[in-house]
Design a protein around this nucleic acid. Structure first.
Length: 274
DNA sequence: TACCAGGTAAAAA
DNA sequence: TTTTTACATGGT
């Protein structure tokens, strides 16, 4: 089954984040393609002319893969707008065909965020790989990301044995067992999503901002507290100076209404440059 | 060896 | 109210 993607599109560049920090086993780079369990079946995604090929294909798989590969983003509009921002125009030109990926599973997005709090993405992926292997259903290459209900039945000591801190183990269990309605979040405005998420223990502003950016694909999401975003903004807009969270948050206003795509391009731009 | 890495909540001041 | 501290793993 073929899924067309607006050109230019560089599959390998766009999926680099699934390789550079090590895999957590849920979305796996394998033999030039990406594999993930969707609706109970492992799907392989590989680049072909004008888009990607899915095997096996299905309506459900196509919808989730579309989201995973960032089809909700309006890159044509972003690139046209970025032409008027000298710095950004240069960054965009350096990564032709880059389309940020998204996280289709909202529970997964929050668990990813919790594991990545404070520690390196590499350490987070290593810990999460053990979590996914322990509670997720193993398929050919990938494991299905553990269901919220399954995680709700886990224990703090089990999670501790996988490398979670006591705190993070409590956060993940608390989240899984909470009343948080992940479906409803998608219907709320950005500010209400943040307010709802930060009311849950273990989910702070940084986690909420990345959730808006990667799980809801909200155009104005701007993770100003993110260390990588701060470094990238400092590198491209402040002559390498380190910027405070407040400074970066304020600077986000000039990127309206494309803060999300701006942040993701600055991150990948810095990575390609450095 | 120490220190840093895509934070957060809770204790202490 | 604002500032400090503990946290656990993986890499350098």
């Amino acid at each position: 089954m073929h899924l067309p993607i607006p050109q230019p599109y560089d599959f390998t560049l766009s999926t680099v984040r699934f390789r550079e920090y090590g895999s957590d086993g849920a979305t796996v780079w394998h033999d030039g393609g990406l594999q993930r369990v969707i609706a109970g079946r492992e799907v392989r995604i590989e680049p072909v002319g004008g888009g990607v090929r899915l095997d096996p294909g299905s309506v459900e798989a196509a919808a989730e893969v579309s989201f995973l590969l960032g089809l909700p983003f309006d890159l044509d509009a972003f690139r046209a707008w970025a032409e008027h921002e000298a710095v950004l125009a240069d960054v965009v030109a350096r990564v032709p065909g880059f389309r940020p990926t998204l996280t289709p599973n909202r529970f997964e997005a929050l668990v990813i965020a919790i594991t990545a709090q404070q520690v390196s993405l590499q350490a987070a992926a290593a810990i999460r790989a053990r979590f996914v292997a322990r509670y997720g259903a193993r398929h050919e290459v990938a494991c299905e990301f553990p269901a919220r209900e399954r995680v709700a039945d886990a224990t703090v000591s089990e999670l501790r044995s996988l490398g979670f801190s006591e705190r993070k183990a409590e956060y993940v269990l608390g989240l899984a067992r909470s009343e948080l309605d992940l479906e409803r979040l998608g219907t709320l405005p950005d500010a209400d999503v943040v307010e709802t998420l930060v009311a849950v223990r273990g989910l702070g502003r940084w986690t909420a901002d990345w959730f808006l950016a990667r799980a809801l694909a909200r155009p104005a999401a701007w993770p100003a507290g993110d260390l990588g975003v701060r470094k990238a903004v400092g590198a491209f807009y402040a002559d390498g100076r380190s910027l405070s969270i407040e400074e970066v948050r304020t600077m986000g206003e000039r990127f309206t209404p494309f803060q999300n795509l701006t942040a993701q391009h600055l991150l990948v731009g810095l990575r390609m440059a450095g």
